[in-house]
């Protein structure tokens, strides 16, 4: 009978059980992450080709970048990733207020990252370096600004999750959104780890 199966429907209607919803949403985010790898992968391929063609241009370009600011930003993003990972464990254990606090720490780290990036960009503009300067800086501005866009989107997602969490929406039996939002934030961290290596370190 149709009526018996309706009883098992989760509130959203698409999923039979909360477990289905949880694993489907996580899988959806992983699929999105797979497409993001290929989005940045295209830029990495362009980088690889021009790095092979014009090594001197990339040496000179790298020397213009501030290793100190780049390293600081790397550590900031690692700490933010750590903080949101702690937050997921916290909500899985029912520590709602701890999750709110850890999301605030993550958002502050994201904002600090953005401030550093602002100073880096304005310093470049002051030295007369623009995306049109050469291919290295075209790639630098393209890659870092696309990454910065992801940071902003990630901060917006985490902010919304924080508001819902303060209203008591999440618990040890419903932490799908915090976990999926955290997955997106970790992706932003992983992309930066490679960008840092490619743009600031490789000589």
């Amino acid at each position: 009978m149709a009526a018996t199966s309706v009883e098992h429907l989760h509130s959203d209607g698409h999923f039979v059980t909360p477990q289905d919803k949880y694993s489907s949403m996580k899988l959806g985010m992983w699929l999105f992450i797979a497409t993001e790898i290929l989005l940045f992968g295209g830029l990495f391929a362009v980088y690889a080709i021009y790095r092979a063609k014009f090594p001197e241009m990339f040496f000179n370009g790298r020397d213009e970048l501030s290793l100190l600011l780049g390293t600081t930003n790397t550590v900031i993003l690692i700490v933010s990733s750590f903080s949101i990972a702690m937050g997921v464990t916290a909500i899985q254990r029912g520590k709602k207020n701890l999750l709110t606090f850890l999301i605030i720490v993550t958002l502050l780290c994201g904002a600090l990252f953005g401030v550093n990036k602002y100073f880096e960009y304005t310093a470049k503009f002051h030295h007369g370096i623009f995306p049109s300067t050469d291919i290295f800086f075209a790639l630098y501005f393209m890659m870092t600004s696309l990454h910065m866009l992801h940071v902003i989107v990630g901060m917006a997602i985490l902010f919304i999750i924080m508001i819902f969490n303060m209203k008591g929406k999440y618990s040890p039996s419903n932490y799908t959104a915090p976990e999926v939002g955290a997955l997106y934030w970790h992706l932003v961290d992983v992309i930066w780890i490679y960008l840092f290596g490619l743009l600031y370190l490789v000589a």
Binding site: A85, M86, V88, T89, R93, Y175, T176
Partner: peptide
């Protein structure tokens, strides 16, 4: 956990 997710300790 009951949702089937894994809890990574602090």
């Amino acid at each position: 956990h009951e949702l089937g997710g894994h809890i990574v300790p602090y």
